[in-house]
Nucleic acid binder design. Sequence first.
DNA 1: TCTATTGTTTGATGACAATCGAACAATAGG
DNA 2: CCTATTGTTCGATTGTCATCAAACAATAGA
Lengths: 102, 102
Amino acid sequence: MRNLHHPGREQLDLPAVLYALSDPTRLEIVRRLAGDGERACGTFGLPATKATLSHHFKVLREAGLIQTRVEGVHRYNSLRKQDLDARFPGLLKAVLKASGPC
Amino acid sequence: MRNLHHPGREQLDLPAVLYALSDPTRLEIVRRLAGDGERACGTFGLPATKATLSHHFKVLREAGLIQTRVEGVHRYNSLRKQDLDARFPGLLKAVLKASGPC
DNA sequence: TCTATTGTTTGATGACAATCGAACAATAGG
DNA sequence: CCTATTGTTCGATTGTCATCAAACAATAGA
């Protein structure tokens, strides 16, 4: 748990990204990160236990959608907008737009 | 099997669409339909049994990605481009682009 | 050092999904 | 009517996923 695994930009896999986005809870996390820039895991107020949320953050991280920065006792998450846009131009924007108004 | 179920344009669900696209076999089917317009199920030459392919076509159909027209003994599939673009502007294009050159 | 906070990991459970072979249904063509 | 073709459905198997409670790890602060 010391080292969080983040795939490189070139390793981003489209099916894995689409799969990560296909869960409503994970999509909501991405939506909020798209607006807020950076947030700690515990600040989402989503209807799930911390174990479940930790699982979802892990899926998003390993698919390359988010980046997690450790600072003290917190984990700050942010969207990897630039990497996603470089690899899959227009995809994130289209998904966010399709997911409704923020 | 007489009546194939196609969800209406307004019923298209983003997570379901993303999930359907997150399988490599299904993504490949969509890619080919994007180029070819209309094709019968048996003409894809994908490495899976007909039972498995029938399953994938069903997932795509019920997510609203494809339309199946029955003619004689064949089922002709086509992409629901217009419905997808109306509901999720730019999404299909971005996914196709991200999935590589056709 | 003790305690509270934050998040991960583990283990278990129930649900769902991908895959296949075999049986079935529908149709076209003899 | 018989047969080949095309695709769906069924049943079974195997594997994966979402979820939770509980245990654990790491850190900050008193």
